[in-house]
Design a protein around this nucleic acid. Structure first.
Lengths: 194, 194
DNA sequence: TTGTTGTTTGACAAAAATGTTAAACATAAT
DNA sequence: ATTATGTTTAACATTTTTGTCAAACAACAA
């Protein structure tokens, strides 16, 4: 396919991701993406054949990027406590850059009525087991381990999705918001781990 | 305007809300909404003039419905503990019905590049003050009260937004999911209030 | 240089979504 | 029954978005 790699294909995908995941413009058109990338719209068809294929490719890579982060932390040779700290650190850094990534994944699934892709559940199950053991050891409050994971991801992801609302509600500017989000890393850890 | 109220205007809005807030189909067209409501698409223009006006009206009412719930609980004549329990109970019931309501509000703001509407901050400020007092009284962990509120809403809202993903990741069906969400009410309260 | 191949562009075509209009319809009042 | 008024519909028009194609362009090889 791409014999002379001009970087255009990657540029288009990166731009699409910026618009969708960072700016949260889920209704962006192919023209919007082309303009933002500074390329002719026809190139989107040249590299991806159709809008739907491009959008799905972006969704697929979003899921892959997500799994990659989680797998990396889940399989790290670390004690649970350190794993947790690293997970919070890495995930929140990504969430601050791409706050709407999960929202994009979900809305694309809702839009296309496509079956939810079966996740590789081995890593998750192993981590759920670790969580259970930590509960037995009294390091974290006893509950359904799935609830524990939902709590964790909720605390990390949601405030960034509702960024614009929070800034209005709590009367804070960009800098202060950034500080609040950085503080959250420590706060979340202390909240779920004694 | 509506001398003979046939209920059509309300039907259109209710249908739009169902599609946007419940089904999470944020890319729905006017035709999609008309079909789902079982009415001629022209009626959307008859009652709302344009698509944009309808969509903004829906967003405005979404914010109003949200504030209404919060205001009601915030100003209730109850002790903080009971207020919190009621808030969790009422908010999660709504979130289970309309999981994507906040997402709709946010994406409409991002789509239209409209200024974030200034919220009535009096009630919020009063509640933030109550939270501070509760912290001083040792009933909740000390932190920035805004973080406390973010925690609370994150824990309530996020798992419902990611419903379809969670079902795949944790291998659960609709019924089990419903039970998990009901259990969360108690779980969230115990997590943030000693 | 010339030919080859992959890339980019503009003009055009097609499809999808939204908006407009006149006429049909229904209901209530005269 | 007839008129008046608000509601609904179908046909049409417009705008927006997406897709196609041939030609121009750029890099590389023979």
């Amino acid at each position: 396919m791409a014999q002379r790699d001009t970087g255009t294909e990657q540029l288009i995908k990166d731009t699409a991701k910026r618009i969708f995941f960072s700016e949260g413009k889920l209704h962006a058109t192919t023209q919007d993406i082309a303009d933002a990338a500074g390329v002719n719209r026809t190139l989107l068809n040249y590299y991806f054949r159709s809008r739907d294929i491009l959008f799905e490719q972006v969704a697929i890579e979003a899921r892959e990027e997500m799994s990659a982060v989680l797998d990396h932390v889940f399989t790290a040779q670390l004690a649970f406590k350190e794993k947790l700290q690293q997970l919070i650190n890495v995930f929140m850094d990504q969430a601050m850059k791409f706050p709407y990534r999960e929202v994009y994944i979900v809305t694309e699934l809702n839009r296309t009525d496509k079956a939810v892709p079966e996740e590789k559940k081995v890593r998750i199950k192993a981590f759920l087991k670790e969580i259970s053991e930590e509960m037995d050891a009294g390091k974290i409050k006893k509950m359904d381990p799935r609830q524990f994971l939902m709590n964790l991801f909720s605390l990390m992801a949601y405030p960034l999705i509702t960024n614009c609302l929070n800034k209005s509600i709590y009367n804070i500017n960009d800098n202060e918001y950034l500080k609040l989000m950085k503080d959250r890393k420590k706060l979340i850890f202390e909240m779920i781990y004694q």
